[in-house]
Amino acid sequence: MDEERIAAIRGLPKVELHLHIEGAAPPAFIRGLAQEKNVRLDGVFDERGGYAFTDFVHFLSVYEAATSVLKSPEDYARLTTAVLEECAENGVVYAETFISPDFCGGGDVGAWQEYLHAIREASDRAETSLGITLRGIVTCVRHFGPETAKRSALCAAETAGDWIVGFGMGGDENQGKQRDFAYAFDMAREAGLRLTTHAGEWRGPREVEDAITDLRIERIGHGVRAYEDLALVDKLVENGIVLEVCPGSNVNLGVYPSLSRHPIERLRERGVKVTVSTDDPPFFHTTMADEYEALARTFGWDEEVFAEIARTSAEAAFCDEETRKAVMKRLDA
Results as ranks from 00 to 15, higher is better:
Ala153Phe: 08
Pro26Gln: 06
Gly223His: 11
Ala52Met: 07
Tyr183Glu: 15
Arg311His: 06
Ala326Phe: 03
Lys14Ser: 05
Gly105Gln: 06
Thr139Gln: 04
Ala188Leu: 05
Gly49Tyr: 02
Ser61Lys: 10
Cys246Ile: 12
His58Leu: 01
Lys325Met: 12
Met288Cys: 08
Gly168Lys: 12
Ser100Asn: 04
Glu64Gln: 14
Val92Leu: 01
Ala184Leu: 01
Glu269Met: 13
Gly192Trp: 06
Ala307Phe: 07
Val15Asp: 05
Ser68Gln: 09
His262Cys: 09
Asp214Arg: 07
Leu253Met: 15
Asp42Met: 00
Glu315Pro: 03
Lys177Cys: 12
Tyr183Lys: 13
Ala289Thr: 04
His18Gly: 00
Glu209Arg: 15
Arg142Asp: 02
Arg219Pro: 11
His117Asn: 15
Ala111Pro: 04
Arg125Pro: 07
Ala326Met: 01
Ala82Trp: 04
Glu147Met: 00
Tyr183Asn: 00
Leu12Lys: 05
Asn250Trp: 10
Glu293Asn: 05
Glu238His: 14
Val165Phe: 09
Ala157Cys: 08
Ile6Gly: 12
Tyr51Lys: 07
Leu193Ile: 08
Ile309Trp: 05
Glu304Cys: 05
Glu22Tyr: 02
Lys273Phe: 13
Met169Cys: 05
Tyr292Trp: 07
Phe53Pro: 03
Val276Leu: 13
Gln35Ala: 15
Arg261Cys: 11
Phe98Arg: 04
Val165Cys: 03
Thr278Cys: 07
Gly91Asn: 08
Ile137Cys: 00
Leu295Thr: 02
Ala34Arg: 04
Ala77Asp: 12
Val62Ile: 11
His18Thr: 10
Asp332Trp: 09
Gly221Met: 03
Glu121Met: 13
Ala157Tyr: 05
Arg324Pro: 01
Ile119Asn: 14
Glu321Asp: 00
Glu3Tyr: 08
Arg268Cys: 11
Leu17Ser: 03
Val245Ser: 08
Phe306Gly: 01
Val109Pro: 10
Arg135Ala: 13
Lys177Val: 08
Phe144Cys: 10
Glu16Val: 11
Cys87Leu: 15
Glu121Gly: 10
Glu96Ser: 08
Gly223Glu: 12
Gly192Ala: 03
Glu74Gln: 14
Ile137Leu: 03
Gly166Leu: 10
Ile132Asn: 06
Lys14Ile: 01
Leu79Lys: 09
Ala25Asn: 02
Glu228Pro: 09
Val44Thr: 02
Phe318Ser: 03
Thr275Glu: 01
Ser249Pro: 00
Gly43Met: 03
Arg125Ser: 10
Ile99Gln: 08
Lys273His: 14
Gly43Pro: 01
Ile264Asp: 08
Gly254His: 12
Val62Trp: 07
Val233Pro: 02
Ile6Tyr: 05
Glu209Trp: 12
Asn90Ser: 11
Glu173Pro: 06
Asp214Trp: 12
Tyr63Asp: 07
Leu33Thr: 08
Val92Ser: 04
Ala65Asn: 02
Arg48Val: 04
Arg297Ile: 12
Glu121Asn: 13
Val208Ile: 09
Glu96Met: 02
Lys273Ser: 14
Thr81Ile: 11
Leu12Met: 08
Thr148Tyr: 12
Val251Phe: 09
Lys329His: 12
Glu36Tyr: 06
Asp210Gly: 00
Arg311Ser: 08
Asp320Leu: 10
Glu86Trp: 02
Pro257Trp: 11
Ala95Trp: 03
Val305Arg: 14
Pro257Lys: 15
Val83Trp: 03
Glu127Arg: 15
His143Lys: 07
Arg142Asn: 09
Tyr115Asn: 05
Arg270His: 07
Arg216Gln: 14
Arg5Gly: 13
